[in-house]
């Protein structure tokens, strides 16, 4: 009887450890996924802003008299592009902490 209870206890302990391992693996995967989501979400807007600003600066250099107009459009473009990164950030915090 004692041997049987020892076996049951050992099996239960191993099952508990396996569950803990699975939980840890799940948490690690979620953290990695969240980090990757944020990183990937920041790359696209980075490229977009680089292209946008490059073109805007070129336009300002070619036509300095319309620099104000170009800067207006550039500022709004940057802000819209940045929204993509913000969405990635929010997905990151929701995946990681909620």
């Amino acid at each position: 009887m004692s041997t049987l209870s020892h076996i049951v206890h050992t099996v239960a302990q191993q099952a508990g450890e396996a569950t803990a391992d699975a939980d840890a693996a799940k948490n690690t995967a979620a953290a990695s996924g969240a980090g990757m989501a944020y990183g990937l979400a920041a790359i696209g807007p980075g490229i977009g802003i680089g292209y946008l600003v490059g073109q805007a600066v070129q336009a300002m250099a070619r036509q300095p008299e319309s620099a104000g107009q170009v800067q207006t459009t550039m500022f709004l473009g940057i802000a819209f592009t940045e929204a993509l990164a913000l969405i990635g950030f929010v997905v990151f915090i929701l995946l990681k902490f909620v």
Binding site: A42, I49, V53, V57, A85
Partner: peptide
């Protein structure tokens, strides 16, 4: 204008 381009790009990183 070149400084503005740099500020826009690095500002993006800074603000994030």
């Amino acid at each position: 204008f070149a400084a503005m381009a740099g500020a826009a790009l690095f500002g993006y990183l800074l603000r994030l």
